[in-house]
């Protein structure tokens, strides 16, 4: 006979940034390889709570569903992770789903992570090319640098590293590990290195690398396994050298 196993899901609902939050519990039909996104879609198709009350579908961000776009980060059983790779069978029930707490809430599970994109602007996370017209090949890059840089450029800006960082909160403007790691990436590239001091200057500005207190949660929470603590250390080394120099010679 068909499986009658149920999945119990508790979702923290909030109709808008200024509305009150509440929990809703849903009972869904279990299927193999179910993940949290599938749970949310089940709710959307039949938005009725466990005790039979009609409700609205849950608003949440998602896109690629293969852990590479960075959209669907949320708190699942209290931990920041990507919903698309959060398998129901590996989660304790009832599964608690909440929005990330370090970003402004939009609705339900959707939050606004614009802060991270603004931070990328602040640290000039780009290679300042002259133009897109044909200027020949780029600089040679050793395989060694490529092997270090490639993992850093896998950052999907999901915000999990900010979410788990005790130093990221309403008291300060800490840009977080992802951004610091991008500083390292662009400073590592032969062309990017030409603007290294600008990026370092930005990262020792307000909310910069100094806010890191070495709890190292970021590296554990990163879904892409980026060596964030290594990035922070590397950028820290460049930062104090530059700061010292600017202090000495003005």
């Amino acid at each position: 006979m068909a499986e009658t196993k149920q999945v119990i899901v508790k979702v923290k609902r909030q109709a808008g940034p200024k509305e009150a939050a509440r929990w809703e519990e849903f009972s869904l039909k279990w299927r193999p390889s179910m993940n949290v996104i599938i749970c949310l879609r089940d709710i959307a198709e039949n938005p009725v709570t466990r005790d039979g009350k009609k409700t609205t579908p849950v608003t949440y961000d998602s896109n690629c569903l293969e852990e590479i776009c960075g959209s669907c980060a949320m708190l699942i059983n209290g931990k920041a992770r990507m919903a698309c790779s959060a398998l129901v069978d590996q989660l304790e029930q009832p599964i608690r789903i909440e929005p990330m707490s370090k970003f402004p809430l939009v609705r339900d599970l959707a939050v606004d992570r614009q802060f991270m994109f603004e931070s990328l602007k602040r640290v000039k996370a780009w290679i300042p090319i002259d133009g897109t017209y044909n200027l020949g090949e780029g600089p040679r890059v050793s395989p060694e640098v490529q092997e270090k840089g490639y993992p850093l450029s896998n950052c999907i800006t999901c915000g999990n590293c900010l979410e788990v960082c005790p130093q990221v909160n309403e008291h300060n403007q800490f840009v977080g590990a992802a951004i610091i790691s991008q500083v390292r990436l662009f400073n590592m590239h032969p062309t990017g290195a030409m603007n290294k001091s600008e990026r370092i200057a930005a990262i020792i500005g307000p909310g910069g690398i100094q806010e890191c207190a070495n709890a190292q949660n970021c590296v554990h929470a990163c879904p892409k396994g980026i060596p964030l603590t290594e990035s922070i250390a590397e950028v820290n080394r460049d930062a104090w050298k530059q700061a010292l120099l600017s202090w000495l010679v003005g």
Binding site: G78, K79, V164, P166, Q167, N169, H171, N172, E211, A213, N214, A215, Q216, N217, H220, A221
Partner: peptide
């Protein structure tokens, strides 16, 4: 002052570094 600006979350993320923090 630094302490006051941080917000510990070791109960949610009980990793060694976080405990040290």
């Amino acid at each position: 002052y630094i302490w006051l600006r941080g917000k510990s979350n070791v109960s949610a993320y009980p990793w060694v570094g976080n405990w040290l923090y």
